[in-house]
């Protein structure tokens, strides 16, 4: 189902999509807020993933929608560039990324969940995270055909693990769906989109932006490296917090799996993917670092927002 509109643009766009009407630059207003822009962009990206029951599948490649998407992406990109700067440090990108992570001073949602969060607060986090975790790793799959043999083989290995090494029951988005159901939440894809704050939309849209554009392949991989390298220890804290609160085992199991899997993926992404990509294609260096810094910035914005809301920062 299409999400609820968050402003004039998304209202016009979603009405046109549902009615299978054409959109033109004249009929679609400019976004009136970041929320409006991001929910419209999220819905346009979803046409490339699972789509919506009420939207004709052919609209995925509608040139007018692609033009609108490009306009929204450009304004999103501009905003990202004002938030994120590319570090100028020398040395392998893996080292630069590890330093970026080491000096990151964002508050930690996982630590809060581990120690103090209530069950309702954790359920809110699970709902927000479901927007990505129910299509976990999918945005990165777009990057595979755009790489040379070295980083491609390593990324394919990483993705194969994300996708359960051939076993549907071990596939990460399946594990998260199992966890949601066990926690008596809805595991329908996109079910909680209307609950997602703009920071969650930005996190998701950045991954789709990097995944769907070949020119952003480096950024997609830099983003992946930070995502994986900031996952193992927080996943352990999440699992501890879920057990402290008595959540059913399948929810904690999703995070247990990520303690071990992401300890591997971190090394793969840093050393066999990002370092090798930049060695082979030095002009990708800034893009990789931009993606890495973007991941940290957008995660920090979400953490600050939600912890401030709970008076927990």
């Amino acid at each position: 189902m299409l999400p609820a509109a968050r402003g004039r643009l998304s209202e016009e766009l979603f009405a046109a999509l549902a009615a299978n009407d054409a959109v033109s630059e004249r009929s679609i207003p400019r976004p009136d807020s970041p929320d409006d822009e991001q929910i419209a962009l999220w819905a346009l990206y979803e046409l490339h993933y699972r789509g919506f029951d009420e939207v004709d599948a052919d609209r995925e490649w509608d040139p007018d929608l692609l033009r609108l998407r490009r306009d929204l992406e450009r304004s999103f990109e501009e905003r990202l560039r004002t938030w994120v700067s590319i570090p100028e440090a020398a040395g392998p990108v893996s080292e630069v990324i590890e330093k970026l992570i080491a000096v990151d001073d964002a508050p930690s949602i996982a630590r809060f969940v581990q120690r103090r969060a209530t069950g309702d607060q954790v359920r809110t986090v699970l709902q927000h995270r479901s927007i990505y975790h129910l299509k976990e790793s999918d945005p990165v799959s777009w990057i595979v055909p755009r790489l040379e043999a070295g980083p491609k083989a390593a990324l394919a290995g990483l993705q194969f693990d994300e996708y359960g090494s051939g076993q549907p029951s071990r596939l990460h988005h399946r594990l998260f769906a199992d966890g949601l159901r066990a926690a008596e939440l809805d595991d329908t894809y996109g079910r909680y989109i209307d609950e997602a704050p703009v920071e969650i939309l930005e996190l998701n849209n950045a991954m789709s932006l990097f995944g769907l554009h070949r020119r952003w392949r480096g950024a997609g991989l830099g983003h992946l490296a930070v995502f994986e390298a900031t996952s193992s220890l927080p996943s352990r804290q999440m699992a501890q917090g879920l057990r402290r609160l008595g959540f059913p085992e399948p929810v904690a199991h999703y995070y247990d799996e990520h303690v071990e899997a992401d300890a591997v993926h971190e090394q793969l992404a840093l050393r066999l993917i990002c370092d090798v990509l930049v060695e082979e294609e030095p002009d990708q260096r800034d893009s990789v670092l931009f993606g890495a810094a973007t991941c940290l910035e957008l995660e920090a914005r979400y953490a600050r927002k939600i912890l401030r809301q709970w008076d927990a920062a």
Partner: peptide, 15 residues
């Protein structure tokens, strides 16, 4: 069990 695996070298891993 994975395409790639990481073996602990610091001795502190819980897994």
């Amino acid at each position: 069990e994975r395409p790639f695996s990481a073996v602990c070298r610091c001795g502190k891993s819980a897994t």
